[in-house]
Amino acid sequence: MSKTLLVTGASGQLGRSVINHLLDTFNVPAAQIIASTRTPTNLADLAARGVVVRAADFNDGTSLENAFQGVDKVLIISTSEMDLKDDRRLKQHETAVAAAKKAGVGHLLYTSMPNPEPVSPVLFANDHYGTEQAIKASGIAYTIFRNGWYQENLFMALPQAIASGHWYTSAGEGRIAHGGRDDMAAAIAAGLADDSNESKTYTLTGPHAYTTAEIAALVGEVTGKQLEVVQVSDEALTEGVKAAGIPEDFARIIVSFDANTRAGRIAMVTDAVETLSGRKSKTLKQFLEANKAALAG
């Protein structure tokens, strides 16, 4: 029996990529795919392909419940709200889970993060941990994708670091297996298209974990530009990020990534992306080579 699949946040980069893989990689009929967003006009291109577009706002439980009506499987892509002064994002996610329960959704999928338990140094980890707990408490079958850090996240630091020749970090000898956003989207789409209703949790990573120094060496190999890694304290890094014009709360979030890396909480490497998607993952070196001009100027 064909199932109806809904993707929230469909106008975002991950959401669009998941829908494109449903259509083009896994050959899911467009009529079985629902794309939800606060602004449906932003998805005119998907509507033109036959995808059903519905309005849904994570701050409006009724709009979510209406969007989820008649849907078998819902992928909740975590929202971009990261206000450290309240639990806004967690509340949004809990609203979506409650709406799915009321609408009779049979399976919930969610994009979380690796090791989100309360001891995590990452300042927004509880948003993900709390959402996972809400999903499990709902009684709905679930698939949780604990997405590792994207290779694309390196754009936040590398261009400036390459330009100056110095990469300031507090990650120490911690390792990260950066993965391609599109690779993770393919894995998520595979899970969404799968007929299984068994509850599972996957950690999605890239194929190899590197220290900051090893990433810098790869950057030098690809760009020909020497990049010196400078290890500093969390406090010094926070001040440096703030001095670059980043608001304090977001600066603290950025530095908490490094603290998490230093603690070894994101050093894992799994084969979940390749197992789910059926394709080889893009290596970090391939990512750097493909984006050499954007990174090195």
Rank of each mutant, 00 (worst) to 15 (best):
T79D: 13
F124I: 15
D45Y: 01
T25V: 03
S277V: 02
S2C: 07
A216D: 10
A187D: 01
S277A: 04
F250S: 14
M184A: 06
A163H: 12
A263S: 14
A48D: 09
E117R: 12
S170V: 06
A30V: 05
G12E: 04
L6Q: 11
N147E: 11
L46I: 02
S2P: 15
S120R: 10
S199V: 03
G104A: 08
E248H: 06
A213S: 14
T283F: 04
A134P: 11
A157W: 13
T211S: 10
A190C: 05
K102C: 01
I19Q: 08
P40C: 01
A216S: 11
N59E: 14
G174P: 02
V229F: 00
V52S: 15
S120I: 02
G245P: 05
G240R: 14
F68I: 05
A35D: 02
G278V: 04
A189K: 02
F124P: 14
I215K: 12
E228H: 13
E173D: 15
A125I: 11
K101A: 15
I135M: 10
N66V: 12
V28G: 02
A251N: 00
N153P: 05
K242I: 15
V18Y: 02
E214M: 09
G174N: 08
N42H: 11
N27W: 07
V273I: 01
F250C: 10
G264I: 06
V52W: 03
H128Y: 13
D195N: 11
Q286G: 09
P116T: 04
H166S: 13
V51R: 00
G106D: 00
H208W: 08
G165R: 11
A193W: 03
E214Q: 15
I215N: 07
T201I: 14
S164Q: 10
G206D: 05
L123M: 07
I162R: 04
P121E: 00
T211D: 03
G139F: 07
R265C: 03
P29V: 02
I162T: 07
A99W: 04
A186V: 06
T205L: 11
V229P: 01
L204D: 08
K285C: 03
S11V: 06
A100H: 04
Q160D: 13
G106Y: 00
G220I: 07
V241R: 04
K73C: 12
L158S: 03
L123H: 03
L64K: 12
A243C: 09
A10D: 07
Q231V: 01
V53L: 06
M82T: 13
V255N: 05
E117C: 09
Q286I: 06
M82H: 14
L46D: 03
F287W: 13
P207M: 03
E132N: 11
K73Q: 14
M1G: 05
A216T: 10
V119W: 08
S138K: 00
E248K: 13
T205E: 05
F257C: 10
